[in-house]
Design a protein around this nucleic acid. Structure first.
Lengths: 199, 199, 199, 199
DNA sequence: AATGAATGAGCATTCATTCAT
DNA sequence: CATGAATGAATGCTCATTCAT
C-alpha cells in the first residue's frame, strides 16, 4: 500500500479519509450499481451525509465527479501495475503480474471505480474523455510492451493489440459474475486467465 | 436468413419492415450509441417519424421497448446459434461456430441490439430481468454444453463456466473497438478468439 | 387596431387570445413588475393556469419568452408608428405623431412589454440581442428620418441622434411615474414632450 | 473634491480607500454591468479579494450593499449639486449647473452607482426604498426649486414636475449610449440638454 | 476580521406518460 | 392509430447566508 500512500502524499490521489475521498468512494459504488445517469446528486450527497447543494463545494458538476473517479482509478492502477511489474522477471511472470493486478483492481476494494471506468465512458464529456484517454494510454502501453515481450519470447501467437483487447473484455467482465466469497480465489482466476493468453 | 424468417413467420420475432420492427431497430441503435437513459422517447419517435405520444400505442412504456429489444435479440441469436451448431461436427468446429455466431451478432447488422443486451441490463426492471434471464439460460446452455464437450475431448483445461465467462467478456468487448472497415475480418477475429479457448 | 390585426393575420404577431399570446401578455406584466430575474417560470405558468413544465411546450426557455416579448413589441410598435406617420403631414405633426405613438406604447395596454424592452436588455443572450437590434434599427430609423426632416425645416437645432436619445430616455421614463388616472392626459403629455424637442 | 472629502470626514460617506469603500465601488460596477440579481456575493467578494463569507462581516446582506451604494450615491450627489448651485447666479446657470452635475454623476467616475440607483430600484426591500426615498426627496427638491425659479423668470413653460421627470429620464438614459471617448464632451451634452429645458 | 465548508430553499429545465381530439 | 398539449415529479445546479474554527 506504500505505492498508493506515496501518490496521496504527492497529491496525485485524494486521501480516502477526506471528505472528497469519501465522496469519490461513494460515487464509484453508486455509479457502478445504479449507473451514472440513474444516480442523482441527491443520492450521492445523502450517501456521505451532506446536502445535495454541498456537493458542488467539492466538485463543480456531477460529471466532474465521474471524471475524478475515473482519473483516480487510472492513476492508482497504473502505479500498482508498475510496482507489480517491477517484481516480475520472466515474460510469463510479467503477464501474470498484469493480469493479477488488473483483477485485483476490478474485484477488490476499488473494483467499483474500475467498473465505472469501463462502463460509464459515454457519460463523460468529450473534453474529459480526451483527458482520461491520455492517462489510459500510459496504462495500456504497459500491457502492450509486456505482451510484445511475451510474443518475442514465442509464448504468444496472437497480435498483442488484439490479445490485449480480448483480455480487457474478459477481465473487466468478471465484475459481473465473480463472487469473492465463492470457491475460486482471485489468484486462481488469474492463472486461468493466463492460460487464455499464453500457452 | 431462413432461420430468422421462420421466426418472423412464427410470430416469435417482429417483422423488421413493420412499424414495430423499425422502432426496435431504431431503439437498438439509439440505446447503444447514447445509452438507454440518455435516449428520450422523443428521440425514438422522431427516428421513425411519429410523435412521442404515439409510441405508447405500440409499447406501454419506454422500458418495454428496451425489454423487447433484448428479448428479440436473444430469441434471434439463440436460433442462429442452433443453426450454426447443427452444421459443425468436431468439438473444435462447434466452439468456432459459437464464437463466429456470437461475433456476427455483436459486430454485424444487429450488433447494436446485442450491445444493449449487455450494457443496459441495469435499466431493466427486476421483473423484466427475470424474464430475459430465462431466455438467456437457453442460450448459455448451448455454450456450456459445447465447451463441456470440448473439455471431454481434452481440448480445454479450464472449467467451462469460467471459460464461458471469459469469452463472454472478450467477445462482447469487441463492440467497443472492432472496426468493420479495418484490416481484420470477423472470421479472422473468430479464429484468434478460438486460440484463447482451445489449444 | 386594423394594423395590429393585419400583423396577426400575417403571422408576424401572436394572437393575444391564443395560449402563446396570453403567455406573452402575462410575461410582459410580470417581467415589468418583478423584473425578469425575479420572475420564475412557476410565476409565469401559474399566471396563465398551467404547470411550469408545460411552458416549455410553447417556448424552449425562459429567455426565449423574454425575446418573444421584445420582438413582438418592436414589430407592433414599428407598424403603429408607420401608420401614425402616414397620417401626419407637417414635420411638426410627424414628430408629434411619433411621440404620441411611443407614449401610447409605453403607457397603454402594451406598456409593460415596452418597459421590458427597455429595462431587461441585459438579460438577453448576445444572439438574441443581435436579432432584436436589427428590428430596433428599423424602428429607430423612422425617428431619425423624421427628426432630420424637422431639422431641415429649421425646427430643431440639436443633432437628431442626440435628440432622439434624450427623447428615448424622457419618454421611456414616464412608465415610472405617469398615472393614467391622474390629471394629465397622454395627449397633453405628448404636447409637453413636443416642446422639449422643437421650438 | 473638497465637498466629498468633508462628507468622508463627517462620516456621512465611506472612505473609498477603505475595505468597505472598495466594496461599494466594486458593487456599483458589478451591479451596473451585470445587474443586481445576476451579481453573486462571490463575484463581489472575489472582486475585492476576500471570500464570500467574509462579506457578511461588513454588511448583513447583499441587499444592504445595494442600499448602501444607493444611499452613498444620493448623499454625495446632493452635496455636489448644492456646491454646484452655490456658484451659479442666473436661473439659466443654475439649471445648467444641475444638468452638468447630474451628467457628471451619471457619466463620470461614480456613474455606475448612479445607474444602479435608477435601474435596480425594484430589488430594494420596501423598507429600504422608504429610506432612500427620503434622501432622494432632498435631492429632487433642489431640482424643483430651481426649475420653479426658471419658470418664474419666464424661461420655462412646462410644469416643473413634468419637466423634471422628462429630464430625469433623458439624463439617466445617457448611461446607455454616451461614450466618454467619443466626439462630444459632457459639457456640450449638458448644453444640448439645457436647450431641451429652456428656450 | 477572515475562512471555507455546509446549508437548504429555490431555480430552469427535462421527460415519460396521459388523454381529449 | 396518431396527434400534440399538458402533466408533475424529478434533475442538476445556484446562491445568499451561517457558523465553527
Amino acid at each position: 500500500m506504500t505505492v498508493v500512500q506515496q501518490l496521496i502524499d504527492d497529491g496525485r490521489l485524494t486521501d480516502p479519509g477526506s471528505a472528497k475521498g469519501r465522496l469519490l468512494a461513494a460515487a464509484a459504488q453508486l455509479f457502478k450499481h445504479k449507473g451514472y445517469e440513474r444516480t442523482t446528486v441527491r443520492d450521492l450527497a445523502s450517501e456521505i451525509g451532506i446536502q445535495s447543494g454541498s456537493l458542488f463545494h467539492h466538485y463543480p458538476s456531477k460529471e466532474a465527479i465521474l471524471k475524478a473517479v475515473m482519473e483516480e482509478t487510472i492513476v492508482r492502477n497504473t502505479a500498482l501495475m508498475q510496482a507489480g511489474l517491477s517484481q516480475a522477471e520472466s515474460p510469463r511472470d510479467k503477464v501474470l503480474a498484469l493480469i493479477r493486478c488488473e483483477l485485483q483492481s476490478i474485484l477488490g476494494e476499488t473494483g467499483e471505480a474500475m467498473s465505472v471506468l469501463v462502463y460509464e465512458w459515454r457519460s463523460l464529456k468529450p473534453d474529459s474523455q480526451q483527458h482520461i484517454l491520455a492517462l489510459r494510454d500510459i496504462y495500456e502501453q504497459l500491457w502492450l510492451d509486456t505482451l510484445a515481450e511475451a510474443r518475442a519470447a514465442g509464448m504468444v501467437q496472437t497480435d498483442p493489440f488484439i490479445l490485449r483487447r480480448f483480455l480487457t473484455g474478459a477481465l473487466s467482465w468478471t465484475t459481473n459474475w465473480y463472487k469473492a466469497d465463492g470457491e475460486i480465489s482471485i489468484e486462481q482466476l488469474a492463472l486461468d486467465a493466463l492460460t487464455l493468453a499464453v500457452k
